[in-house]
């Protein structure tokens, strides 16, 4: 841990504290204030991008808990989000209040995650990745073919979420809802990492046999990681469904799982801050590409027809380049930049 110069800890509690300096707290406070004021400052387009970023942050941080912190690779995260989305959507359509429906969706996703997490006791690494891939495809099939409940390929149409009679029917209102949910998820995960359970997850990731010898119940903790992670993913899915007011199987395909994984790779495995970076980066990437394509369309008129393919290619290329040149992700780069300025001008 790179502490500030002259920052000494005399107790474990002090070392595990959330903010180690007042400066950090002030900066974060200012940033939150900026976010709260965001709907007044930015236009409708940017606001919708911010909304999507908030949802992506929840998805990324949940996967980071499972894959980055506990070391269990999941290729089924998109489907877990889907279970949450369908769960929440079905509940609100039956007249359940939105907050309860969201939690119910999360619980459904959590259950699905734990069921498909059971093989994780015997399987590791690549085998687990393939098992979760199977989970993804099987759940996708269920979304598509259980037409009586999920609406099949037509999907379900939803109303904007209503909380205690207050309808979040504009982007700005939705933004506050999503911001609160994203902040809560980040807090939950960041705090979980400071507890005994969080340390058990890290021990399992680092070496499962030593963890077991040190008294960590592998099965219980792996299942817990799957459950908590899928719960948050389900919440993200439920929020997404209610934000777009539509659920369909295509939203929760394997590409969603892959993009969640890409977010945590690009952001930084096992880092809460990294999940945020990754989610922001990968949400802005296609938007930036649209912008560039718009500018270039004066010279290449058919570029907009190729945009889908281009987007996929740029996504893949970014992923490969990050893995080769910055395998520890944006969070690592952020740390380096901070250290540089902290020590400036005496870097050595």
């Amino acid at each position: 841990m790179h502490g500030k110069c002259g920052l000494f800890f005399s107790s474990y509690a002090a070392e595990a504290r959330f903010f180690q300096s007042g400066f950090q707290r002030t900066c974060l406070g200012l940033f939150v204030l900026l976010l709260v004021a965001a709907p007044l400052l930015v236009g409708p387009y940017l606001l919708s991008v911010l909304n999507i970023i908030c949802i992506a942050v929840i998805g990324a941080v949940s996967l980071n808990l499972l894959t980055g912190v506990c070391g269990q690779i999941s290729l089924g995260h998109g489907a877990f989000m889907g279970v949450g989305a369908y769960g929440a959507a079905i509940c609100t359509l039956r007249g359940v209040p939105f907050p309860l429906a969201l939690l119910a969706g999360g619980a459904a996703a959590s259950l699905a995650g734990m069921v498909f997490g059971v093989p994780s006791l015997r399987l590791k690494g690549i085998y687990l990745a393939i098992a979760t891939l199977a989970a993804q495809l099987i759940l996708e099939y269920v979304f598509l073919h259980a037409g009586g409940i999920t609406g099949g390929s037509n999907g379900l149409l939803l109303d904007p979420p209503t909380i205690f009679g207050f309808s979040c029917n504009t982007d700005a209102r939705m933004f506050y809802l999503l911001l609160v949910c994203a902040a809560l998820s980040l807090l939950v995960v960041a705090n979980l990492l400071r507890t005994r359970h969080g340390r058990a997850f890290v021990a399992i990731r680092d070496f499962h046999l030593s963890a077991e010898i040190a008294g960590v119940n592998l099965f219980a903790y792996k299942l817990m990681a799957f459950g908590v992670s899928a719960f948050l993913a389900g919440v993200a899915g439920g929020l997404w469904a209610h934000y777009t007011q539509f659920v369909s199987p295509e939203q929760f395909g394997i590409s969603q799982s892959i993009s969640c994984l890409a977010m945590i790779i690009i952001g930084g495995l096992g880092s809460v801050l990294g999940s945020v970076f990754g989610a922001v980066f990968l949400t802005l990437l296609p938007e930036g590409l649209n912008l560039v394509a718009g500018t270039l369309s004066a010279w290449f008129p058919d570029i907009s027809a190729q945009l889908v393919a281009l987007r996929e290619g740029v996504f893949g290329l970014t992923l490969v380049l990050f893995l080769i040149f910055e395998p520890e992700g944006l969070a690592h780069r952020w740390k380096l930049v901070r250290a540089y300025w902290k020590l400036y001008p005496f870097a050595h």
């Binding site: 894959t67 690779i73 690549i126 393919a309 996929e312 290619g313 893949g316 290329l317 992923l319």
Partner: peptide
């Protein structure tokens, strides 16, 4: 493992997009 899996996934995206282009 996860890095290697992800690099092949990235590769598949790139190849798919090249073919589509």
């Amino acid at each position: 493992t996860i890095s290697v899996i992800m690099v092949t996934i990235g590769l598949s995206s790139v190849l798919k997009s090249l073919v589509q282009l």
